[in-house]
């Protein structure tokens, strides 16, 4: 495989990862401020209160909670889309909200999000090969190298090369999600942020994507932050689960421990609602 890490021109300290977590979130507090508008008064809404967690190399951590609890806000903050009110986020040893934007751009390719709706994640005017190769542009690969890497990625996500010239609208939901994964992997990321990656897919397709993500994780030594309300998915992919409610962490621990011995009644409620081993007689 064409390696791109050398092209990233990272500072030496960024590569000292073996003993350190890939991602460390410290006392993160997030919220939204709404400015006064047409006679309405300005408002502040606190979403996440003082949460901390870390993701080690080759580890998958699931953030689980109901819709609106702030899971995606955490992802947005890690991606530097939403500035924290308080706290620090360290990615590859860098405090991402303290470093200048130019420096963040250097490590940003190592941090790749995969969102829920693959239809809106892909540019409708770009063919599949253009979309994937667009992600490699900043790596300054030669055309031959980029083409070789494209072929490897398509093979890795089990997409037929014949689909290269297709537009996103011509693909099924599962195929589009595979393209999004291939595009994310194009930059050899250290951390994937998977925000409800399966909620738009039917069961059989979802299982294929679970299998793909699992094998990618092992093969590429990836760390993942999985954001989901589906404990069944968390059970399949995550090493650890963090349960959020009302903006705070109410339960966290190894996946099996959370599922078999949850400490909070809300976690039990989630397990029950997810239908885990639940069937009328």
């Amino acid at each position: 495989m064409v390696s791109i890490k050398s092209n990233l021109n990272l500072e030496p300290e960024m590569n000292h990862l073996s003993a350190n977590p890939i991602l460390q979130v410290e006392n993160l507090t997030l919220g939204y401020r709404r400015s006064a508008w047409f006679g309405t008064s300005s408002r502040q809404q606190l979403i996440i209160r003082d949460i901390s967690f870390a993701i080690q190399p080759n580890e998958t951590v699931a953030l689980v909670g109901q819709s609106g609890v702030g899971k995606t806000s955490i992802a947005n903050s890690i991606l530097r889309f939403l500035k924290p009110w308080h706290g620090n986020i360290y990615f590859l040893g860098q405090n991402i909200w303290q470093i200048p934007a130019s420096r963040f751009r250097l490590i940003r390719p190592r941090l790749q999000p995969i969102f829920q709706d693959s239809a809106t994640a892909l540019n409708p005017m770009m063919t599949i090969d253009q979309a994937i190769m667009d992600g490699m542009k900043h790596l300054k690969l030669s055309h031959a190298e980029a083409q070789q890497r494209l072929n490897e990625l398509l093979q890795m996500v089990e997409l037929e090369p014949a689909l290269c010239n297709h537009y996103p609208r011509q693909l099924s939901g599962g195929q589009r999600q595979r393209v999004v994964i291939a595009r994310a992997l194009a930059t050899e990321p250290s951390l994937l942020i998977l925000d409800e990656p399966l909620s738009a897919l039917d069961l059989v397709t979802a299982v294929q994507i679970i299998d793909l993500l699992r094998s990618m994780r092992q093969r590429l030594n990836l760390s993942c932050l999985l954001i989901t309300h589906d404990l069944m998915l968390a059970q399949q992919l995550a090493d650890r689960i963090i349960v959020l409610k009302d903006g705070v962490v109410i339960d966290s621990g190894p996946t099996q421990q959370i599922l078999t011995n949850p400490s909070h009644h809300f976690t039990r409620q989630l397990i029950h609602a997810a239908g885990i081993l639940n069937r009328k007689t």
């Binding site: 089990e158 997409l159 037929e160 099924s172 059989v204 294929q208 299998d211 699992r214 069944m232």
Partner: peptide, 12 residues
């Protein structure tokens, strides 16, 4: 909570 093997061949 068991590992599911996807149906083969793949979707495409």
């Amino acid at each position: 909570g068991e590992t599911v093997a996807p149906s083969s061949p793949k979707l495409s």
